[in-house]
């Protein structure tokens, strides 16, 4: 089939399944969610299987990610934010491994038999994660401060600025799940599309023959650069997702008094 740059994002059913009239087929997207979760679980279990005082390489990797996220939460949401440590850690790991595993060229390794897929390149997934965070922030905020949670929308400014700034605060609060989900989704979409587009340049130029074939080296070099960049983006977006979650939680926990 003609593999357009968007082909890689297509969702194909593997095992058809329906519950209560809703199509919940096990698709390649579902498969990759399972792969992501299994990889994280296996890595962490293996890392801690022989937990020792002097850690092995894998164990120190697990410990480093643990302290990395714990420190991040502590610095942005305080010790109170550590209540949400498992959730934020799971969120970070899920996004990170989705992003990273989607970059591995399984399609090349398996000769096209098995396609890589990036779970987080789908807006529905990132939006679901972002809305979970959003809902959690509201629930935590109301549970902790009750009606006073609404003062989050009243910034510390002279009173005559409030008619302007309060609606802005409300809009910015409501747009959080959108910006949070679109940021991750768009980054994954753009990066992967770019890789495939340059990949098709390589193939096209090489097939053109003559002097043009030699030119196919140029998009190949670009792919190498972009791939390196995408690995950075993959990590960065997972980090951004996690740190924004802790910052939003900080708002809910401490309102303006931080």
């Amino acid at each position: 089939m003609a593999a357009g740059p968007m082909e890689q994002f297509a969702v194909h059913p593997i095992i058809p399944l329906e519950i209560g009239g809703v199509d919940v087929s096990f698709t390649n997207a579902s498969l990759w969610m399972v792969i992501v979760v299994a990889t994280i679980t296996l890595l962490l279990t293996m890392a801690m299987s022989k937990s020792s005082m002097v850690p092995s390489r894998l164990q120190s990797l697990a410990e480093i990610s643990y302290t990395f996220i714990a420190d991040m939460i502590r610095s942005s949401a305080g010790t109170e934010g550590l209540k949400f440590f498992p959730f934020i850690f799971a969120l970070f790991m899920f996004v990170l491994f989705s992003n990273m595993l989607g970059l591995l060229p399984f399609q090349l390794i398996t000769g096209g038999a098995f396609h890589q897929f990036t779970v987080t390149s789908h807006i529905i997934v990132t939006l679901a994660l972002a809305l979970t965070v959003f809902a959690m922030v509201i629930v935590v905020g109301i549970a902790k401060h009750g009606f006073r949670f609404l003062t989050l929308f009243v910034p510390h400014v002279p009173w005559y600025m409030l008619p302007i700034l309060t609606p802005i605060e409300i809009i910015s609060f409501l747009s959080r799940p959108i910006s949070l989900s679109v940021r991750l989704f768009a980054n994954m979409l753009a990066g992967h599309t770019m890789l495939v587009v340059f990949g098709s340049f390589v193939v096209g130029l090489a097939a053109a023959g003559g002097a043009l074939s030699a030119l196919s080296v140029i998009p190949m070099l670009v792919i190498i650069g972009v791939t390196a960049l995408e690995f950075l983006v993959a990590f960065l977006q997972a980090y951004v997702f996690a740190i924004l979650t802790s910052i939003y939680l900080n708002d809910a926990l401490h309102l303006h008094d931080h």
Binding site: V22, V24, V37, I124, V125, L129
Partner: peptide, 12 residues
């Protein structure tokens, strides 16, 4: 595809 993705996302 949304229902399926959400379903499996919640599970995984």
């Amino acid at each position: 595809t949304y229902a399926s993705q959400l379903f499996w996302l919640v599970l995984t």
